[in-house]
Design a protein around this nucleic acid. Structure first.
Lengths: 337, 337
DNA sequence: CTGAAAGCGCTAACAG
DNA sequence: CTGTTAGCGCTTTCAG
């Protein structure tokens, strides 16, 4: 069944078919005024008849814009699969862009090779702006974007982006609050499984934890792990338990980490929240899946996405500076502490 | 800090700078032979000096190809967030395309408006081919793609795609096998929480279940729910339990559904696997998170993605027909049954 | 209101 | 080996 890929109709074909010039066709295509009703009708009919669909590459070339914006996810494999926040951010961004009739294209940077290709792709003019999720300090993609002067908005608070637009939550403040609240349930030895310290969010959550404990802070009580993942949470909690057997409270960097920690705690025979209270961060679907349900910090992931999208749109619209946007991240108290 | 977006350098600038013609520049850009070493060196230096990056819109226009392929996810909100398979498919596709130096662009179709915009976008020539995840029967995107004759590969087995390329697992056969095995543990009343019957995978899993039970099949024992989700699993299991209190085995359409069902079962005071055995489908991260760990069918999600990507690449390469690809989906037996 | 013509940045013949 | 010349399909002056 050789689906013969016939040549696609162009403005020229439409013009011919409608008996007008290409200029006029272009005018109706772009909804411009000063086209007679007759011409408009003839052209619209012709478009339908020949099955014309504008070629975006051509349009992008002349307009120097593509009506598409990219969302770059730069995460290790595992996290991308496990982190429900990313999908929510994506959906939030998509719906905001959709309203403005922009196409969202999600681009993933998995290997160094991907990073290179992506940097070229971004410079290619097929993307008008980008939303960058989980940038890391010194990230080559970030660098490429700022060098290009491509309109961009970051989700999170990377340290090296100057005054580029970004939307975030107050990780440090929220971490401080929830730690205080955890301590307030009468815990004496509260520790932390601290993940992703190479990321602003991870570092800030640890800082907030330290803030909260103030003078009571004991470095022994924090266990560092690389990723916001279930398995790292479990492994980290095990080590923490070995080192500090009398621990009675733990703040996990994320809900996934908390879920892993809970498993380790349970395997060690600790009851939650009786023996040890635990709190997480994100209020992702992990939180409700935990047993008991997790007390955590609500992260408005979809709003992060839509706010970032709007920030990019504003720049496309000529806005030259976007003040950092900070979204509310309330504590959700459930039964794990 | 007005980042003046200076005019980007073009081949012309490079040619001028290197003292050659644009044709020659183009030749080195595309790695073609018949360029003197001198010219090549001069051009490469010039490229670096003026910071030239080729404009993809222009190249796409003349080449009629963009080196980008789209992966369309057409899922309701909730599922996209909850389903780890999608992310794995995405990653698998990305790595296969990456090897061929193609850019993967993930496009999401959430609202009807998205669907329209997407159909236009696909026709625009900025995408050379598509991988379609979870198409539904009569899907307008599917229709647009086949009408366009755009190289495509489906993940799954939609019914109305003619002989379009697709890669899938044998949902029906695997469902049959795991149901038999569940029944083989001595269960007398085995039911099913059957999700997503509007999708080929959902319908096939139910068919496999019916196959396995043969004469013993009792329609009372299947409870239908709309989505492959935790919450639908829980709700469905509750109803099933009300209707058939003596149920002692259940096959859930997916791991997420199984996880929800387990919660319902537990709330009803049933022990697993003692009182009721339960099995799922997907072998996603849900499976290990369940307590006890879930027996399930392993779905090689990343391989589905990479195989689909290769199928699209083959078509781009001129291949005119791709036989359906069926991947292995072995049973993974754990402790939930 | 509309046609003609120029040109976006790049590649691809075709002569040299 | 290399320069010249046409376009790819679309928008946009600029004259009518």
């Amino acid at each position: 069944m050789e689906t013969e890929r016939r040549r696609r109709a162009t403005v020229k074909d439409v013009a011919l078919e409608a008996g007008v010039s290409r200029g006029t066709v272009s005018r109706v295509l772009n909804g411009q005024p000063y086209v007679s009703e007759d011409a408009r009708a003839a052209i619209e009919a012709a478009i339908a008849r020949v099955g014309f669909v504008p070629n975006r590459a051509a349009r992008s070339l002349v307009m120097q814009s593509s009506q598409a914006i990219g969302l770059i996810v730069h995460e290790p494999h595992s996290l991308f699969v496990e982190d429900p926040n990313i999908a929510s951010i994506l959906l939030g961004a998509n719906s905001a862009l959709s309203e403005a009739d922009y196409q969202l294209s999600c681009l993933i940077a998995d290997t160094p090779r991907d990073v290179d290709r992506l940097a070229r792709y971004l410079s290619g003019g097929l993307i008008d702006g980008v939303i960058i999720v989980s940038a890391r300090v010194g990230d080559p993609i970030t660098r490429a974007v700022v060098e290009l002067g491509l309109p961009a908005a970051f989700v999170g608070n990377p340290r090296d982006i100057g005054d580029a637009a970004h939307v975030a939550i107050d990780n440090r403040g929220s971490a401080r609050e929830i730690t205080k609240r955890l301590a307030g349930t009468g815990r004496r030895r509260v520790g932390m499984v601290a993940a992703a310290l190479d990321r602003d969010s991870g570092a800030d959550r640890l800082a907030g934890f330290v803030d909260a404990l103030g003078g009571d802070f004991d470095p022994q009580l924090v266990e560092r792990v690389p990723f916001y993942s279930f398995s790292d949470g479990k492994a980290g909690m095990k080590r923490l338990l070995d080192r500090v057997p009398d621990i009675d409270g733990v703040f996990a960097s994320s809900d996934a980490v908390a879920a892993g920690a809970i498993e380790a705690l349970r395997e060690a025979g600790r009851r939650i929240p009786d023996d040890v209270g635990i709190v997480g961060f994100d209020d992702s679907s992990w939180a409700l899946r935990c047993d008991p349900p997790l007390s955590t910090v609500h992260q408005p992931a979809d709003q992060l996405g839509s706010a970032a999208a709007r920030a990019v749109l504003a720049q496309l619209d000529g806005q030259t500076f976007t003040a950092p946007i900070l979204l509310e991240s309330p504590i959700v108290w459930r039964e794990s502490a």
